[in-house]
Amino acid sequence: MRVTFTVNGRRHEADDVWEGESLLYVLRERMGLPGSKNACEQGECGSCTVRLDGEPVCACLVAAGQAEGREVVTVEGLAAYAKEREGSARTGDLAPVQQAFLDAGAVQCGFCTPGLLVAADELIERNPQPSDADIREALSGNLCRCTGYEKIMDAVRLAAARTDDGAPEVV
């Protein structure tokens, strides 16, 4: 079958898609967007988290056909997505969560990072000043095996603080 949907603001099309293929597979293997990760392909680890019409979903559990005609945002489009949301207030090439993950040391192997970034960005969009308990609840579907989550907590707090201030600080 053919599927057509929008990814990061651009219309993408894939032909000869087998009906069993997931959105994750089509993004990674047919559209040249391997940023979303394939750590479990069982909907348990969150590393493939993308926005589907704004909702965070595990792309591995969405059949590619279900994305037909819809809007997908992946980690590759996160900076542009955040920039559009925040208007011209922001400078820099990265979304606040991306910069905060770097600055806080929240990235080790980085395999969980794309999914966590999409989920954390959605959290801050919805709840600009999350408490620690809010952060832990919102990100409890995203497994990380390297960091023990401490620096991920730091990163999300930092991103929220910077977003709340209107513009990222230069560190």
């Binding site: 979303s36 990235v107 980085g110």
Partner: peptide, 12 residues
């Protein structure tokens, strides 16, 4: 490798 890892451009 941090920037590549947060933009999804780091190739595993």
């Amino acid at each position: 490798d941090g920037t590549l890892k947060v933009t999804g451009d780091f190739a595993y």
